[in-house]
């Protein structure tokens, strides 16, 4: 994060400020505010209610009065798969959390969308520090150091595959570097993304490995591997996807989204 760009007053308690601002924002909308896939509204007499947006009017929900119950809710999808990225649009339904006050509201939100409230607040105030892909890559070490060599085109492709609203509900605010903006739809939601996350860096590493491959007869070895795996799986009548962040596996959704961008045009062109 460049010091020169930081517009944050050094001695503000942003956590406390964001709690108050978020509660006031929710208080101002009796019908509720949508944050990611959560609708939250002031609810007398107990304070605030949080639900899945698709359950806004549902009855018979499992009610909890512990804001930390949000952690278990956020952990697994409806189908029982682990959710390594809390802003993926796969939050499960069927629950309601009732909290007494703003502190409980933000505690629950921080399990549903970690650091989402404070980023929302800072962004709204025009004071959210952004970290570009190149700044983020420059500090990587170990197995992630290779993302420093990812091309600009590779970053664009990785963002389209990894960060669009179809797979992540955050609004992507960072760019490739100060002079190279991302040419993507940055998303519609309320939760800002100020910096490439660890899931993105892991995916970027995978894309960098793709970039280093050499085509043989028009296809790279991993493209061949992915097509074979897809055909084999589809031939069984059921395509079982790899886990959400299992980017080394051919049938990973984000990996397939990247193939759609890069491999499908290549196949059509060659055909």
């Amino acid at each position: 994060m460049s010091e020169a760009r930081s517009r944050r007053p050094e001695f503000e308690n942003v956590a406390a400020g964001s709690r108050e601002a978020f509660a006031a924002w929710v208080d101002g909308a009796p019908d509720g505010r949508v944050f990611g896939q959560v609708i939250t509204r002031p609810a007398k007499p107990f304070g605030y209610s949080l639900r899945h947006t698709d359950d806004a009017r549902a009855a018979g929900l499992r009610v909890s009065e512990d804001p930390r119950a949000a952690r278990e809710i956020a952990k697994l999808t409806e189908g029982g798969d682990y959710r390594p990225l809390k802003s993926s649009p796969n939050l499960r339904r069927g629950w309601e959390i009732r909290v007494a006050d703003a502190r409980g509201l933000v505690t629950a939100m921080n399990y549903l969308y970690p650091a989402g409230v404070v980023h929302w607040y800072l962004n709204r105030e025009g004071r959210l520090d952004l970290t570009s892909f190149r700044e983020n890559a420059a500090r990587q070490s170990g197995i992630y150091k290779r993302v420093q060599r990812l091309s600009d085109e590779g970053v664009q492709g990785a963002v389209l595959a990894c960060c669009e609203d179809a797979v992540c509900l955050k609004k992507t605010l960072w760019d490739i570097d100060e002079d190279t903006p991302l040419e993507v739809d940055r998303g519609e939601g309320e939760i800002p993304c100020p910096e490439p996350c660890s899931i993105f860096v892991s995916f970027a590493r995978r894309v960098r490995l793709f970039e280093r491959e050499k085509d043989v007869d028009g296809l790279s070895p991993s493209e061949r591997e992915d097509l074979s795996a897809l055909i084999e799986a589809a031939a069984t009548g059921e395509v079982g996807f790899a886990r959400e962040a299992e980017f080394e596996q051919p049938l990973n959704e984000r990996r397939m989204r990247y193939r759609r961008l890069t491999l499908v045009p290549k196949l059509r062109r060659n055909g």
């Binding site: 308690n13 942003v14 956590a15 406390a16 709690r19 390594p84 990225l85 809390k86 921080n110 970690p114 650091a115 409230v117 404070v118 980023h119 800072l122 970290t131 100020p194 910096e195 996350c197 660890s198």
Partner: peptide, 16 residues
């Protein structure tokens, strides 16, 4: 966490 959220990069902003 290193590989989960909240990341180390942003956690201190959530601490009062």
């Amino acid at each position: 966490f290193w590989k989960e959220e909240p990341s180390m990069r942003h956690v201190l902003d959530t601490v009062e």
